[in-house]
């Protein structure tokens, strides 16, 4: 199943993004950052591919800094 991970500069933004996303009805999950994407020790936000556009839009509106967005599959 393809999915999307959204990376943030720090855990603070990842937690804030998760809270905003859940508050707006998105189905998201915080997961460890996949090693091949970044050497950061933190977390990123996982969501289904179809939620990528509206979620990115919401996070931008809320002024949450996004480090990168990646399409992955299980």
């Amino acid at each position: 199943m393809p999915y999307v991970v959204i990376l943030f500069p720090s855990t603070h933004y990842a937690i804030r993004a998760e809270k905003m996303a859940k508050g707006s009805g998105f189905t998201v999950k915080l997961i460890p950052v996949p090693r091949h994407l970044s050497s950061d020790c933190g977390v990123c936000l996982r969501c289904s591919s179809d939620q990528k556009e509206p979620l990115e839009c919401l996070l931008q509106q809320e002024g949450i800094k996004i480090e990168g967005i990646h399409f992955l599959s299980d």
Binding site: T11, H12, A14, I15, R16, I31, P32, C41, G42
Partner: peptide
Amino acid sequence: NPGRSGHRLSIEAARILYEARE
């Protein structure tokens, strides 16, 4: 330790810091 790992306890600790900031 908040923000130092992706496991659920680290995330939970980071959530507490976030909620306090908010």
